[in-house]
């Protein structure tokens, strides 16, 4: 029982990281209207950016978060101009294939420049563990949860309460109509895409701190997790995508309590498939939306 409760705590903190990735993913998909497979590589670049900052400048989490955000923002711009900008009018599989190609390119360049081996992430947060009854919560888990909640709240505030958020949502719902509102659709889509990537980069920093390792090929499975979480939430809805990420994190960690840690992905993707069989539209039930 104690073990199970602690696995729930682990699941929530890992799920929070997945949630941040999924929020980024659904922002990207929402605003560009196209599926991306570069998300894992964006996560990886975010992790490496903070790794080098910690190594050469010092153990400062805030600085690491900023570095991850900027690095993945820049990568997001690259991805936008290569994979989306010219293909909005083209059939959607063209940019889809383009993102697969870009992800291979980025991953292999990363293996050349960062090395193919696992690297240990510096331990920048104290290994303090708090006990609440039978529960054990580490300082790291608290920091992760706070970071995710703060970032998600900032994003939610911008999207729901500012003119800029209205622009972003208008672009994600109807690009032609957004043009007719005088919105610079290409610029707005680019910024939205970069914000989604920036959040994914920070999630990459968090997951590499959590596992205390990072690797140039880490993006593959993490990108799929972000994608799955986002699919669970209906792809473009940030709130439900976050819920999807949390669910996958929990299921994974509960699953490995009854089996071994190497079965992690089986539980994650098994859960995805089960949910999609029962509810193909994911958790979200959109009201008032036109069917796409």
């Amino acid at each position: 029982m104690e073990y199970l409760l602690n696995q729930i705590v682990n699941g929530i903190s890992q799920g929070a990281i997945y949630a941040l990735m999924a929020i980024g993913y659904s922002v990207v998909v929402g605003v560009t209207g196209l599926i991306t497979f570069t998300h894992g590589e964006v996560i990886m670049i975010g992790a490496f950016a903070s790794f080098y900052i910690f190594q050469y400048i010092g153990n400062n989490l805030i600085l690491g978060i900023i570095a991850s955000f900027i690095a993945s923002w820049i990568l997001g711009m690259f991805i936008y101009y290569v994979c989306y900008d010219r293909f909005f009018e083209a059939p959607s599989h063209i940019s889809l294939i383009c993102t697969i190609g870009a992800s291979m390119l980025i991953r292999n360049l990363a293996q050349i420049y960062f090395g193919p081996n696992q690297k240990p992430m510096l331990n920048i947060i104290d290994n303090k563990v708090y006990r609440i009854g039978v529960l054990q919560v580490s300082l790291m888990q608290i920091v992760i949860l706070i970071t995710v909640v703060v970032l998600a709240s900032i994003l939610a505030f911008f999207i729901n309460n500012t003119r800029w958020g209205i622009m972003l949502r208008a672009v994600s719902q109807d690009k032609k109509a957004a043009y007719l509102m005088g919105i610079n659709v290409r610029k707005t889509a680019m910024i939205g895409n970069c914000i989604g990537c920036g959040l994914a980069g920070i999630a990459g920093l968090l997951i590499s701190i959590y596992y205390q390792t990072l690797q140039a090929t880490m993006g593959g499975s993490l990108g799929m997790k972000a994608f799955s979480s986002s699919v669970l939430g209906g792809l473009t809805d940030t709130r439900y995508s976050a819920l999807g990420g949390l669910a996958i994190g929990l299921i994974e960690n509960l699953g490995i309590t009854i089996s071994t840690a190497s079965f992690r992905d089986i539980f994650a993707f098994g859960f995805l498939i089960t949910v999609l069989i029962i509810r193909p539209e994911g958790f979200a039930s959109r009201k008032g939306a036109k069917s796409q």
Partner: peptide, 9 residues
């Protein structure tokens, strides 16, 4: 044509 309001706004 066809109004094209933003449905979820």
């Amino acid at each position: 044509e066809g109004r094209r309001i933003f449905p979820s706004l």
